[in-house]
Design a protein around this nucleic acid. Structure first.
Lengths: 187, 187, 187, 187
DNA sequence: AATGAATGAGTATTCATTCAT
DNA sequence: TATGAATGAATACTCATTCAT
């Protein structure tokens, strides 16, 4: 019986792309445990990286969180814009939104959690507020491919509200209801 | 909405109503520092009460937060219902909502912040989710005094989205825009 | 949704024998959670009695623990003495001890846990040391009904050792082995 | 066996071997104040190390206690085995045991206390139970150098009982009595 | 006589960050 | 460049005991 609590970390000194992996893992941790649960340690554990490695790449937690959310927006916003570009007309946009809100709830659930966490954090963190506003602006600009600015903004707000509701309600709206709500904005 | 941090601690063994004061102060702290900042210590300091007093009245932080949000909902929901009861018709309701969302009344701002904090916390905390759902249900029921259930639900979602936007955006919608958005649901 | 965290304690102001019930419950708590787990609160909860009631009847924790262990010894020691008195000869005593150590492990397990907890606590608590020594002396005196003082003492020590072993070993001695060990002391 | 509580904290960022020092100090604290007194803080104070240092090296108190007891067993068991190996015959073994149990050497007293604390803790802590069982098995195996397995086991139990008695009794057996008791197992 | 409230010290543990190597 | 060690403040929560009623 000998004392042995070696943390079983495979040596991995050469590890290119580690920085990116840390950023990606940070998002995973946020999704699973919230921003409150996204500590240096939690991320280090999840990314299987020594604690010092996190603080080496990111001077502060804030910097890490900002990097993570920025990366998220840079993934999600272009994808959304692409969908908008691909849509033939405003009707097609609404169809897509219905699909997004009612359908593949696995992927959207993730996006939604990230969104809400970001929104609240932004309320008290200027760096994140910039990220949030960038995201809002981009998504509105994408919608403006098919709607006038006023409608785009209203639609954006409604979608946000619907997302919140479907995230938190035990009795979420069904596809028809969502369709009906969005139709208020279509021709 | 300022929290007095007076370090002077008068001896005060007999202090009826302290429990309620703690609950009220908890809401203040949430508004000022977010749920993440609502620690036992922070609340104790703000309520000018010894730390042990908090844990005496509330076995866990969760219990305290739940009590605080419940108290908030029990204040806000009846007030909203009263407004709905008082409104002559659906037009009057929309007028009130516009006022509520656009008026940068201190009270409104406070309510917005509490709501958003609650929503995010609810995503990870079943007890708070129950509070949230109760709130949603009550507010929908109030709207149903003037709208059919489908419209009430849609309107509720839009309001939620608008709240999020106005709570977090640096460039919130103006009164006309809000009015215009809500008008989609009026007769 | 109204706040209601009433601790659901049935009113029971008139409750004779409560003192005794507290003492008995304290022993239960010690058995289940160890002396370290026998706090005022734990006992109050287990005995379904308000916290203040414990400190009302027992000025300090020490007093409560002492009362509990004393009660235990006053139950166990006479019982053991009765067995010794009833035994025809030293052989019958050994038969009884074998039975006790190998057999009804449910009751003995409880006694054993109490014994070991008491012993260790006694090492640092004078009040409990007195209880322990009283117990040791009484049990030795009981054995002296059938053995000379020297043998009684040795037998007592061996029994204690066997009890410890059977309490902690995953592979306890079987009846024959115990019988064989004790036989060293019989004629 | 005195624990220096020097409040002077020299800056000491580089301190190799600190982990081992913490483990050793933990045993000291257990000897002086019992397991119940072996808190993170108590150990930190005794080892003249900041509190965070303890939790850095040992994620939980359990881990620390386990390391301490394991270290103890890894010191004591080989030493005992060495004595057994060195003993010419079973008589020499008994002589050594008498010496060990009767000599009020500081070292012996210390070992006794550690043993008893370990035994009680083991009753409620699986990790410590493993340490205990390891110790029991090793000590039995050492005895088997001179006794058949059955006798070794009985002797072990008796020794344990004698240890308990001499650790806790104010009126411990004298050398002759111990000698006499052990002689029951000699040729 | 009895008890709910109060309290200050204490518990284990987590944390962001800094430092020495 | 990379990282294990270090650290002091903070976290939620428990506790024995005292007090006001």
């Amino acid at each position: 019986m000998t004392v042995s609590e070696a943390p079983a970390r495979r040596a991995r000194r050469y590890d290119p792309g580690r920085r990116d992996r840390i950023v990606a893992t940070t998002l995973d941790v946020i999704v699973e445990h919230g921003i409150a649960g996204a500590s240096h340690r939690a991320v280090a554990r999840a990314a299987d990286v020594p604690l010092g490695s996190i603080t080496y790449h990111f001077a502060t937690l804030d910097e890490l969180l900002t990097a993570a959310f920025t990366a998220h927006v840079d993934t999600v916003a272009p994808r959304f814009d692409e969908r908008m570009r691909a849509a033939r007309d405003s009707g097609a946009v609404l169809d897509y939104l219905v699909e997004h809100l009612a359908g593949d709830l696995l992927d959207s659930a993730r996006d939604l959690v990230v969104m809400v966490e970001l929104y609240v954090a932004a309320a008290r963190n200027p760096a994140l507020r910039a990220v949030t506003q960038d995201w809002m602006a981009r998504s509105r600009r994408s919608l403006e491919r098919h709607f006038d600015p006023v409608t785009a903004r209203e639609l954006d707000a409604l979608v946000e509200g619907l997302v919140l509701h479907s995230a938190l309600s035990t009795d979420p709206m069904d596809r028809d209801q969502i369709q009906h709500a969005l139709a208020r904005f279509a021709r």
